[in-house]
Design a protein around this nucleic acid. Structure first.
Lengths: 129, 129
DNA sequence: ATCATATTTAACCATATGGTTAAATATAGA
DNA sequence: TCTATATTTAACCATATGGTTAAATATGAT
């Protein structure tokens, strides 16, 4: 297993563990926004939002650009790659649980096979709908 | 953006936000284990480990099988798929930041293109080592 | 200079978290 | 039945978290 930066992962996963913060990231995925704009859809005070932005910033997921009186907030998705990599280690486990296609896998080409299987599984899911 | 179960994601990401718990999952990825076995490498009391197991269990990442006096713990990676799906929405963002290959992408085949690009990026990374 | 706007900081509060030790529980074995 | 083993529960503690309101700060506009 590859070695990850524990304290970085702590911060990123913690930042993602709150639905308000996930919603803020979703908002920023549609483009930069001012603090006030970010806060608007939430029934929460501005200081509360400001704290959430701080948590996201410390996790490296958000960058604040001071621009006169206002402050533009920008998504910085890079740290999500580390989180994604960490989770991906477990992909073969959840896919093995999902069904029994795993038995077809050529263990020497595990990663490629897993990707192929993933596509098959998605096709099956779509047909079921 | 697809709709996710917020409280489920809250629990899973929170469970992942602690390095002890991530280490426990890593241990379980090598196979089932007893509570005592899980606790062994940590400089922490058994009740502390027991609490961590509780957090993982509530997130659905761990299953405990009572088997006489002992309790076997098993990894249940399924909830990680939801977390992975959530994060994957942002893949194009971190890849766009990574370099400028993005400009080659056919926006109508974004997902396929992103996968292709991902491979290219990995190749480049390997060459750099 | 004054006032309004955008945002953060400070001080506070209730609850959650991550740890501890000691006691309780359940079961295996002598 | 008595004792040792495996694990959880209870009670406690310090710190962190997520929220509040009020005050401070910084800048733009009149």
């Amino acid at each position: 297993m590859v070695k990850y930066d524990d304290s970085q992962l702590d911060k990123v996963f913690h930042a993602l563990s709150d639905s308000t913060r996930r919603a803020i990231l979703a908002r920023l995925s549609r483009g930069e926004a001012l603090v006030t704009e970010i806060a608007e859809p939430f029934e929460m005070s501005l200081p509360a939002i400001s704290k959430h932005l701080g948590v996201l910033e410390k996790a490296g997921l958000l960058k604040r650009h001071k621009d006169g009186r206002i402050r533009r907030c920008e998504l910085n998705a890079a740290p999500l790659e580390t989180a994604s990599d960490w989770i991906c280690f477990y992909r073969s486990f959840w896919e093995a649980q999902l069904d029994s296609l795993t038995s077809f896998l050529d263990k020497n080409k595990k990663e490629k096979a897993v990707n192929k299987k993933s596509n098959i599984v998605n096709l099956i899911k779509k047909k079921e709908k």
